[in-house]
Design a protein around this nucleic acid. Sequence first.
DNA 1: AGTATATGGTTCCATTTTGGAACCTGTCAA
DNA 2: TTGACAGGTTCCAAAATGGAACCATATACT
Lengths: 164, 164
Amino acid sequence: MRWEEIDSQICSIARGLAIFGDKWTLLIVRDAFRRVRRFSDFQKSLGISKHRLSDRLNRLVDVGILSKVLYDEKRDRYEYRLTQKGIELYPVLMSVVQWGDKWACDGDGSPVVYEHKLCGHETRPKYVCDQCDEEISARDIIPKVGPGIETKLLRGQVVSRDGL
Amino acid sequence: MRWEEIDSQICSIARGLAIFGDKWTLLIVRDAFRRVRRFSDFQKSLGISKHRLSDRLNRLVDVGILSKVLYDEKRDRYEYRLTQKGIELYPVLMSVVQWGDKWACDGDGSPVVYEHKLCGHETRPKYVCDQCDEEISARDIIPKVGPGIETKLLRGQVVSRDGL
DNA sequence: AGTATATGGTTCCATTTTGGAACCTGTCAA
DNA sequence: TTGACAGGTTCCAAAATGGAACCATATACT
């Protein structure tokens, strides 16, 4: 299977990864959260080739994760900023950070820690059930066929019922 | 910059993505959560070439996300199972699922929904501060230099202080 | 005994993707 | 006028990938 076909799977992971699952895209989004906005600053920060960066930025704009904001009319220069769709990638990045802090650190501890403005404490965000507020672990979750699959079944489309 | 150098960054995102930031690896881990364990089952599920799959499985074993478990001594056959290090990738996958459900669905709704065994309800896990239990949003988080950077500074290593 | 089939690979090659260097264009500042 | 800067595009060699063919072992079927 070619990568472009991967998002044909009825799976939000496959569809998400089809958008930001390549080598550079999430690092670009990471930089955007760090308030990097301009082409040359992304390039300096990432060490990516201009060619690739240009390509990735355009794609991120196309899919609506970044938007271009004019900042110099004369020279037709744009900044790249996160949209709401982009901002909501925060949990993805934060969960990668937390995994990396635990499993991919040299011995010196987390490079970055996070203060929660609302309570003033250093926070290690955790996933909880929105119904009972207990922390989520993989073993306590049962995946079930959802409306996105059910609707297709009713329509007679053939789908796989695999679930995470 | 070449991709192999990316994990030299003192950044847990870069280091995490260096491990599972390529096209197929997270999909393999997804399947592992779905109890796919054998070479041919991964291949059927993913449509990845055997070559690539062999390569990725071995890498995942090398970095300790999967382990090989002998299931047929005569034929020297192994299953691939998530280790603890792998199981803890669950929040990464779950956050991708939630983003995908919201932003990368066709109109039919989530393909899969999740029941929380402990409370019996359909859950939409949320990220909360472990100190005050308020839901986390990108804007309420202030990144600060952590021990992983401070230690290096004290040692005189030159590091960047960027943070998410 | 002989053949077929399943599993889990490896080898090879053509196609794609990538990194890096060189080049381009418009503007501004000295 | 010269040079620097931002933000690209073009080109090529190197690396990653997909797909097909091949292989080795063990069991299962006839």
